[in-house]
Amino acid sequence: MTKLTTICAVLAFHLAAPAAMAATAQEIMSLYDKQSRADAEQVKLTMRLVNPQGKVRQRTINYQTKTNEQGKQNSLLRFVEPADVRGTALLTLEHAQDDDDRWLYLPAMRKVRRIAATEDNENFMGSDFAYEDIDFEELANNSYTLLKSEMVAGTDTWVIQATPTPQSRDKSGYSKRVLWIRKDNYAVVQVDYYDKKDELFKKRQATGLAEVDQSGKWRPKRQEMLNTKTGHKTEIVYEDYRIGGQISDDVFSQRTLADNR
């Protein structure tokens, strides 16, 4: 190849690059964060824990969440299945400064009990998802780098590396994450999680993305989190998404926890 053709090729590459490539990683992540947040949201989810031997433990949960006055989330999880735990409920009230308040209702005891708060790097409901995986993105606690663009399952994505800032490194269970974010709607389709040894540790995939209730918010029909080190995985199937609409504040109160069966 002559010098001239090389220059031409380089120029052609730059001209052909999508305009979106100009977006910074920080901007992409802001838009991703915006699309993932909703003031009120509810969904029925079926969680399947699959152990490396292929055995499955399945639970169905109704999940409701609403943004509170502090700009944080109140949420209620109520078990629908299996039958012997039906009605078991967990209420979480997040606070901006203090520890979260959590209450538990066990129908077999007919008692509401306050339970201790959790940490970000603990697992969510005994699944392969950590609390930090299902929470909203903490934009200030990470630095982002745009690695490349890549096609995933027929759609174009940005590949972004997220590294915890030095201040938040201890709170996170990861040394870094790599996220694949769709260019058309800023929804995440894949995340690789690296442990503190900087080795691939978990792989998350979201499929069946669709816009819910014309809200501009895209949600997956199914998510899977695979622990690549143990071979354990968690699958979640979502049904009856509802975004926006009215959820009474009463839903998130200790008083109604026990009788809201």
Binding site: W103, L104, R113, R114, I115, A116, A117, T118, E119, E122
Partner: peptide, 8 residues
């Protein structure tokens, strides 16, 4: 005092 602490 208020209930139960299941966790760390």
């Amino acid at each position: 005092a208020e209930g139960v602490d299941v966790g760390r």
